[in-house]
């Protein structure tokens, strides 16, 4: 018991590479693009266009930042509605120019605040999911740390979903779950077990296709290996017919598989 919660702690660790690190490690050259063209630029979303294996790719990451200054600026990787709208703008742009999309997800959840609510956090996530799942271009989503609820799924409705071996994907934080169910946040470790939120769990449910080894995490060889893997997968996806239908079926299947008729 408690193994899952250990993984949650690792997933949250400040020493892990952030979303921007992955992008800079894998895509070269890379140009960052800003803004949602509606209201603001959300620094929690780090995004732009990069080259991988001679192919232009739109890349979008949730970035938690490294030092205190950067973490505050990026509000700890909790995107505001403008972040999701920026991501969506760039995804639609990628579709227009027939570029594949890769997202790197690492968030405890969408930004929680009065302003974010009033500017339609729920609507921004809903629209992002609905549009992303129907994009006419190949998409890969990689969970690199925390996959916190709808705020993570907003960038996760992809053809392929991969998880780093110490990443987690959950509908609620173990602490939140424990305090709601058992009125005791100290039971977070039990909740983490119950929620089945590890990469291996996701793999067994079919929610993730692959668990990525963290050998040499953040090093040159690590990024080279992951880059090659992404490149290969994008090439395969580009040749696949009826990508949108397959993606629909992919997300459609869980409700069929994990319910019963009685």
């Amino acid at each position: 018991m408690g193994r899952a919660y250990d993984i949650v702690r690792i997933a949250r660790s400040g020493s892990r590479p952030t979303g921007a690190d992955y992008i800079r490690g894998i895509f070269s050259p890379f140009i960052e693009l800003h803004g949602d063209r509606r209201f603001a630029d959300d620094p929690a979303i780090f995004a732009g266009i990069g080259i991988l294996g001679g192919q232009a790719v739109t890349v979008i990451a949730i970035d938690k930042g490294h030092d205190t200054e950067e973490r505050t600026r990026r509000h700890f990787g909790a995107p505001e509605p403008e972040g999701y709208r920026k991501a969506l703008r760039l995804m639609k742009q990628a579709e227009k120019f027939h570029r594949p999309i890769v997202t790197f997800i690492d968030t405890s959840g969408a930004y929680c605040g009065v302003d974010a609510e009033e500017r339609g956090q729920g609507e921004a996530i809903a629209e992002s999911i609905m549009e992303m799942i129907d994009l006419d271009t190949p998409t890969i989503a990689i969970l690199i740390g925390e996959g916190g609820s709808g705020g993570a799924l907003a960038l996760g409705a992809a053809d392929r979903v991969w998880m780093m071996e110490n990443a987690v994907y959950s509908v609620i934080s173990p602490e939140g779950c424990a305090s709601i169910l058992w009125k005791d946040a100290a039971k977070a470790a039990d909740a983490a077990d119950g929620l089945r939120l590890t990469a291996d769990d996701a793999l067994s449910f079919g929610i993730a296709e692959e668990v990525i080894s963290e050998d040499g995490l953040g090093g040159k060889a690590f990024y080279a290996r992951l880059g090659e893997k992404i490149e290969r997968e994008l090439r395969e996806l580009a040749e696949q017919k009826d990508l949108r239908q397959a993606r629909y079926e992919r997300f459609r299947s869980f409700g069929r598989k994990y319910t019963e008729r009685r």
């Binding site: 996959g147 609820s149 994907y169 959950s170 509908v171 929620l195 869980f254």
Partner: peptide, 8 residues
């Protein structure tokens, strides 16, 4: 867990 999340 994440199975309910996927329903979104």
């Amino acid at each position: 867990g994440m199975l309910s999340l996927m329903q979104m």
